[in-house]
Design a protein around this nucleic acid. Structure first.
Lengths: 112, 112
DNA sequence: CGAATGTATCAACGTTTCTTGATTAATACC
DNA sequence: GGTATTAATCAAGAAACGTTGATACATTCG
């Protein structure tokens, strides 16, 4: 009855993505990664963040699929997964009010 | 093009927006609002959410600037602020790794 | 081998967020 | 006026989140 009007994407996936993006430290990490792959130690220096703190946030980003890591020797290199940001991008488009959606609202009379 | 690294937007504004979008209930609210303005009572029915719970989430969305409300009689009508979603949209674009950004990483040697 | 380095994980704690039920405020209807 | 009705707010508790310091694990170097 309360049918979805148009193809709203998986809400739980969406909230996971937005949640991962909802922290300033994590946004700073992503900002640093825009220029390309970075190792944890460089991120640590650039962000002036404690090691375990950084590791925590990298894990959140990784589990949301926003970044991937690559091990090389004793270093871990992280980089952005562009497709994930595209996914977020598409979500914001899907959420925009669309003129062609059902005009559910009956002006003047509300709530039966 | 004068692009250097790129204009990273206000992190705290960004995290407020993403935080507001990080909850499934709030995403459902926005999904319902895509079709146009809705009163709280209709949202309540559509989402099967307790009144105070809905009110809480509407406040989060409102304070993030993602929705506005309009009072009419004893009803409150909420609707999406498209500009706010555009803002989010732009953020995802800004976060995309750009080939023309500084290639900070020196392959092979890390951390001085 | 042992020591040093880079990173992940864990446990503990404080903070924030979400939910619930009760109360309050404003409007409408009799 | 009194009584519904709609929605915001508050207080309390539960759950999720973020920080810190300690520990564990793997890799490199001597």
């Amino acid at each position: 009855m309360t049918t979805t009007i148009s193809p709203l994407p998986d809400l739980s996936r969406a909230s996971t993505l937005f949640q991962a993006l909802s922290d300033p430290t994590r946004l700073s990490i992503l900002a640093m990664l825009r220029g390309g792959e970075q190792c944890v130690c460089d991120l640590q220096a650039g962000l002036d963040a404690a090691q375990s703190r950084l590791s925590f946030h990298l894990r959140v980003l990784r589990e949301a699929g926003l970044v991937v890591d690559r091990k090389e020797g004793r270093w871990s290199y992280y980089s952005i997964v562009p497709e994930a940001l595209t996914e977020v991008h598409d979500l914001t488009v899907d959420l925009q009010p669309s003129a062609r959606s059902l005009p559910v609202h009956r002006a003047g009379s509300c709530c039966g």
